[in-house]
């Protein structure tokens, strides 16, 4: 993970009223998720399955910490849930955005329906700017069916121009950045 990009990304997400958490291994990811889930009384949790989600044992953790799991895989009636968890493909340092190929219905639903969205991101996938993200998805000349750029929680200023968080989308966006190789951060350097 590039330290400069990480610092910029983190600052931007915070500026957008998002939250950023840092983990150095999957176990830590799990702990952070458990802690977040336990802040709510038996919440309904929607999980869009991806390799990182599986490897971090998210499903078991959610159940252990009192959450009721709903694996979103499409083909089921759309249900409302309190917390959504999914993995993002890219982060953009310049804008604090998360980017995801969200062609899969489940991936789309967990980031747009719930009040809380927990987004997992691998630190090495933070790119400098929006153009890099466009290039990433255009590599083969065929962009995926649905690309989602998410920058902070859902917001409006439609009543009296007062910025209010959480209209149609999540009111809380928590980004967990996983930096497995521990590079580029103070904590990482100590370990080397």
């Amino acid at each position: 993970m590039n330290r400069k990009l990480w610092n910029q990304f983190k600052e931007r997400v915070l500026n957008l009223s998002g939250e950023v958490l840092y983990a150095e291994d999957k176990k830590e990811v799990g702990e952070l998720i458990s802690r977040l889930i336990s802040q709510y009384p038996n919440p309904m949790v929607g999980v869009a399955v991806s390799p990182l989600i599986e490897e971090s044992g998210v499903v078991e953790l959610v159940e252990k910490s009192g959450g009721i799991i709903d694996r979103i895989s499409g083909g089921e009636p759309v249900r409302e849930f309190k917390i959504g968890i999914s993995e993002m493909d890219l982060g953009i340092a310049q804008t604090g955005s998360l980017v995801q190929d969200a062609t899969d219905l489940g991936k789309r639903l967990v980031s747009m329906l719930p009040e809380i969205h927990i987004a997992l991101l691998r630190g090495e996938n933070i790119v400098p700017c929006l153009q890099d993200a466009l290039d990433h998805f255009y590599r083969k000349g065929i962009p995926p069916g649905y690309i989602a750029f998410i920058s902070g929680p859902s917001r409006t200023a439609d009543i009296e121009r007062v910025l209010t968080i959480g209209v149609h989308g999540p009111e809380r966006l928590v980004v967990i950045v996983l930096n497995e190789r521990g590079e580029g951060t103070k904590r990482g350097k100590k370990r080397v």
Binding site: E76, Y146, A148, F149, I150, S151
Partner: peptide
Amino acid sequence: QNITSYITMITGAVPTYQRETGEL
């Protein structure tokens, strides 16, 4: 704003939940 909260890029028809059949 530097960027809006959401930018959505849609290329063609994507999977959706069909209420009548209950399938994707």
